[in-house]
Write a protein that binds this DNA or RNA. Structure first.
Lengths: 233, 233
DNA sequence: TCGCCAATTGATATATGATTGATCTACATG
DNA sequence: CATGTAGATCAATCATATATCAATTGGCGA
């Protein structure tokens, strides 16, 4: 079951929570669910969750009060390396939303980067917005072995939230490569560039908690409105 | 496996791992596969692998925890800050070198991002190579308050080595933005694109340990040969 | 407002099985 | 003698499961 590169489960969980705190999904002062409930939700044993929480209290990110609960004691870090959303408006930031263009289960295209074990994948095409302005078109391939079917209704929330809650899958590692690529012909007409125009293109490969690569995605973004941003601290 | 005159096998293996760590293929905190599995993968005996790992723990690059695993513990080296955000050959990696085109002390251009306190800056223009192939042209602005004069002879080594050794300057934070920009007219003729061609353009701002931004740089790279790579963990 | 009780919730302890590094012995090679 | 391989065994860690104790919280009645 285990494979190369996979951290111990309790460390995976603590990394996951650290990322949620940094990304602002867990807010300062917030009380976490009871340990038993939270462990069940994550599909792990309570003892394992407690080890993860222990590492967070050692880092000062969580306060644990017997009989009361576990509380977040840290603020979101807007410059977090762990913010997986990496395109921003030129003016900075922007609230991300998306319109799903299509969801299909297809045999994997041989031009895709190597990922997952299944011969099939789910292809999701989205138009992405930042604070309402058209920012990018995106094609995501999710390994077919993870889930039988995905409907557009599954994708109303954040994709990573969907991965975690429905697929019990969380992203442990990712690699982005930024190059140049022609805007694909399925780009909708409200994207402000002509099909075939060379645009900055992000190719992302992501790995799950067990070290298996599970997702590949391509993002063509509008350089007049957004930029790919990487911060390091 | 070994051949005459070559290094002992266990040293070959440790050198191999050191290169993987330096190249960012093995990330800080990552757990290596179990020794038995890893040795089988490398086609060597466990004892030999253990000798190799021993030399790495002596160098402080790996921590070995009984019952848990072997973990990468990359040294905190300011140059390693940049190992994760960089341009790489499409085939992966590449040995970076550079040819300095010009070094000047000039008043700051008002189009520059805000950085430093001085009204003047050092402008360094370089042609960058990866494993000998032309990869990018780069313009770096270093704040004028940090040093009076910079000559091309100062820049033979890594720039960040120069910063640290000569300027006692410690890079604590950096931000990259990747967009699109026309190749400037000072790009040398051996760069394989015409001046004015829209190319991926990296705008980097770096901050020193005191929170002051000290450097701004622009890099135009050839998307046919290299890509900007960001690895997230 | 105060005190009490029951429910909630974290803390602690123990046990078990699997994983994984540590150690040791033996042997072959050059 | 250092290197490399092979195998057996020991010890630490990881993850799970279960039970019990202790602190907090909230509701209820006087």
């Amino acid at each position: 079951m285990s494979s190369h590169g996979a951290l111990p489960l309790y460390l995976q969980i603590s990394e996951l929570l650290i990322r949620d705190i940094a990304a602002g999904r867990l807010i300062d002062g917030e009380r976490l669910p009871p340990e038993r409930e939270m462990a069940a939700g994550l599909g792990i044993a309570v003892g394992t969750l407690r080890q993860a929480l222990k590492t967070l209290t050692d880092k000062g990110l969580v306060e644990r009060i017997q009989g009361s609960g576990n509380y977040i004691r840290a603020k979101a870090d807007p410059t977090s390396v762990y913010a997986l959303l990496r395109i921003e408006l030129l003016s900075g930031g922007g609230l991300p939303t998306a319109r799903v263009l299509s969801v299909d289960r297809l045999p994997k295209d041989p031009t895709l980067p190597e990922f997952g074990r299944s011969a099939e994948g789910h292809r999701i095409r989205r138009l992405r917005f930042l604070s309402g302005t058209v920012a990018a078109v995106e094609e995501i391939w999710l390994d077919g072995a993870l889930v039988g079917r995905i409907g557009p209704e599954d994708l109303s929330e954040s994709l990573y939230l969907f991965y975690r809650q429905r697929l019990n899958l969380w992203i442990a590692r990712a690699e982005d490569r930024v190059g140049l690529g022609p805007l694909p012909d399925w780009a909708p007409s409200d994207f402000p560039h002509a099909q075939g125009t060379p645009l900055p293109k992000i190719t992302r490969t992501t790995w799950g908690q067990d070290g298996q690569s599970v997702e590949a995605s391509f993002t063509w973004y509008d350089p007049d409105r957004v930029a790919y941003v990487a911060r390091l601290k």
